[in-house]
Amino acid sequence: MITVFSQSLRRWKWQIVGWGSVLLVITLYLMWLYKPMLEQQAQLKNLLDAYGKEMLAFFGGAVDLFSPAGYLNFGFFSYIPVVVGILALLLGAGLVAADEEKGTLDLILAHPIPRTALFWGRWLALAVALGAVLLLTWLGFALGLPLSGLDTTVGELLLPHISLFSVLILFAALALFLSLVLPSRTLAASVTAALLVASYVVTSLASVNDKLAPINNLSPLKYYQGGNAVDGLNWGYLLGTLAAALIFTLLAWLLFLRRDIRVSGEHGWTLSWRWAAKKG
């Protein structure tokens, strides 16, 4: 499992560095921007008031922009699950299916590696990769904090990242599960991306439309706290999201244990649930 874990991390090192460094620069810039924005508070308030509340809902709602939670939500945490979610779901959908589609998994699994070790080794590497990206993101906030004068601490800034991590892991797990059920990882990633965007839209609009409350209960992003987590984590939401991720991961693992390893051109590209039903 350690071999698989280290090889997977090595494979993703440039993605970690690329995503992490871009996000580090963005968060550093955001922190630097806080002071100038604070100086033009009045004009900005007028500008924001001109926008409809539906519009502001997509940026964390009509909250106090200059509070730590409001600013972090507006500038970063409200939309970032969709952005970094793309990385998470691509890694999840490709965790097993990428090698399967390339045809390299066949030879890997002809070696004495348990499927369980391969699966969990890669899953752990995925979690570490996402964690490393978020750590670099947090580093940007932490380095910029003294410049900003934002009324929060480095420790409190870590909390929204923990909430974000739980959501990213959930969408990665969903994509992984779908990649083992649907005929291709592209389809699995597309379906997961559609669900991610739908969740973002529903949860954002639910803050201004009460009729969306029932459907919002099913939206994963309802349980994402974003910048509000600087005031304290909702442990129920956090553990619930992680539990959902664990369920999808366990289902994916069980599917991976019992399924045939597909090789292109060998009649293996039917929906696996049909195959499973046939096997009964």
């Binding site: 071999t3 090889q7 494979r11 390339k102 045809g103 390299t104 066949d106 030879l107 890997i108 002809a110 070696h111 004495p112 590696i113 090789v263 292109s264 051109g265």
Partner: peptide, 27 residues
Amino acid sequence: CGYLPGELHLEESERVETILRQFNAFR
């Protein structure tokens, strides 16, 4: 067992020695 698949696909981004060392690590 030693296995040679009919349709051999390798990790394109790696050098031959790295690939062989990875397989050796699996063993």
